[in-house]
Design a protein around this nucleic acid. Structure first.
Lengths: 106, 106
DNA sequence: TGGCTATTTGGCCATTATGCCAAGGAGCCA
DNA sequence: TGGCTCCTTGGCATAATGGCCAAATAGCCA
């Protein structure tokens, strides 16, 4: 893998890494419905506000979400919806695995 | 997030975690072209064979690739091609970020 | 069987990721 | 200004990753 390919894949892996956490996937799915403030998201997840703030910050740096301060709250939302295609990719893998299990059990 | 949602997202995050590494993305792209043995992949990446073997094992456990022993070599291949939609998901994010940078520079 | 080649696994170590608490900063309202 | 609420960031402890070397396995072929 030459330097350019290396950079190419490092950059893409960063985006996937940002998604690759249960809480962050939940947040992305949530934000796909509507913009939401940090405290509400924290309540939904059931984790410390600081923890959620960190997850959101990570998603923001990855370019997946944006934030907007309004009053003393910060509302996060998806930067674009096509990132939701992560579902198609993952479901394809899970379905193939499920089919394989059925085949093995036959 | 209740117990079921938690399980749901944990399972999906596992698949994304398997993809979320530069070397593993490279391997997936490579295997999309044709099945390849471990030693050839190791040479392409330029890493220790044991390192590549571990990455492939991880991809296999995630249900993304399969292996087939033939002689004293092991050939890996994609289990299904729809996993390649990771590209669409990631490119959407990168393109949005690029647009944003252009807008900011305007 | 003995020697080779191809892979996987065990061990170790360095680096990164996570999560919570506490502290710090911002904005709102009385 | 003082007190609240909402977020973010610093500090830490713990767990998970990633990589390489060395050792163990498996299959081929003399």
């Amino acid at each position: 893998m030459d330097a350019e390919a290396s950079r190419h894949y490092r950059q893409r892996a960063l985006v996937l890494k940002a998604l690759a956490h249960p809480t962050r996937l939940f947040l992305v799915d949530r934000l796909a419905e509507r913009e939401t403030c940090v405290c509400e998201l924290a309540a939904l997840v059931g984790a410390d506000v600081s923890t959620i703030s960190r997850h959101l910050s990570l998603l923001k740096h990855a370019g997946i979400v944006t934030d907007e301060k309004r009053g003393n709250q910060v509302f996060y939302s998806l930067r674009q919806r096509r990132v939701l295609t992560w579902r198609r990719c993952v479901e394809a893998v899970l379905e193939a695995a499920a089919r394989e299990r059925l085949g093995a059990a036959r």
